[in-house]
Design a protein around this nucleic acid. Sequence first.
RNA 1: UCCCCGGUAGCUCAAUGGUAGAGCAUUCGGCUGUUAACCGAAGGGUUGCUAGUUCGAAUCUAGCCCGGGGAGCCA
Length: 433
Amino acid sequence: MTTITIANAGRHDGQEVTIRGWLYNLRESGKLLFPIFRDGTGIIQGVCSLKESPDAFNALKGLTQESSVIVTGKIRAEQRAPGGYEIGITGIQVVQKVPEATPFPIQLKEHGVDFLLDQRHLWIRTPRQAAILRIRAQAVKSARDFMDAQGYTLTDAPMFTPAACEGTTTLFEVNYIDDQKAFLTQSGQLYIEATAMALGKVYTFGPTFRAEKSKTRRHLTEFWMLEPEAAYAGLDDMMELGEGLVSAIVQGVVKHRSRELETLKRDVKKLENIKAPFPRITYEEAVAVLQKNGNPTKFGDDFGGDEETVISRSFDRPVMVHHYPSAIKAFYMQPDAQRPDLALSFDMLAPEGYGEIIGGSQRIHDFDLLVQRLKQNNLPEEAFQWYLDLRRYGSVPHAGFGLGLERTVAWICGTEHIREVIPFPRMLYRVYP
RNA sequence: UCCCCGGUAGCUCAAUGGUAGAGCAUUCGGCUGUUAACCGAAGGGUUGCUAGUUCGAAUCUAGCCCGGGGAGCCA
């Protein structure tokens, strides 16, 4: 007997097969049962009649949702079945029956956010959530394949750090060994600046932690970030890399996860259009776009969610806004030679109102300027000595950016909130399950 | 930290000052092509907590707790 996955059921039309999975739903119609099974790759309807398979019928009748089962039967094309194929059940083994006293809490209907988040360990079994997690995995694979093909080497940054990377955002403090203080990283950037000077072109990809009191659909306390850094690279190099990376991620998902996008009812045409080059506008041009749309933003203001939405809605592809004022950007960003009040920085804003998915810049490579900026930002110089070493020993112009994985995947999936695109979201006031 | 919204059965919601209800889920019964199946019946409630107003509070008031969305900040 061949054991198959439901996703491949169509290839076994007419064959007797085994499916190992769970009971997703059961419709009973007298002496005829219509169970729907899932196995993580998809769902398929089964048919079981009392007359033809009495043993299987009795095992299945009244069986509770999410009971684990091993089913044997014949695959056949069937117009009336969801998905076009069904399995005519000849045998069933119940691996574990969900007790009636404790039924599976997630039903085939709408549920509230609070409830679903409390049940996240079970929520991920639903077809929609499973599709999202597969798309996330594909996005990671496409991103890493692209970076590797571009000659970038993965160099992992530490999770424990002795000080802030940017000083402004709130850090999680942890007790390190023998009463030392340490913090959970908020970015691997400072460390990959070091590995970039060792290896040339590098990136880091892993979780980062921000103890910000942010309660919005775009924020997680723990999120994953892919950060490239390259020696002898400038702002334009990073914008080119960024548009190539995002194109590769989106096209990889479109190519390999069309079934999942269909499950999510995502408009794939909008994604197929996401190909480099992306539009680029300066900060000053972006301010003009905002003012034309009646937004009160003036030169020198930073953009909030509303502003990002207005700007990104003006384009059908991600747009890169560059040359922000230094005053509203991080201390380590290189000023423009012609316009010292502007930083060689850029943000990439995703379309459809999803906002910033990349933030990047060329870094300050001059020792004295960096020391000056540390002082201006009241950052402890002692903690940054190793970082300053990178400007003492063969300093070169270099640049990089950070891509937020969850924001990118949320946009690709079209989800309302980024909490759905990570298996177990960590948010303000929520660390369960 | 601030602003806005919410908390009623396991779940999704109704009841706006006068006996706390429906659908789903669960249990029992019926149905040979169902599509979140359908039909009939049953069990299931300290209306987030505390105090107050009132003859009477799920409903009005105050405080607190919990959750959601947003601002700031950021990916």
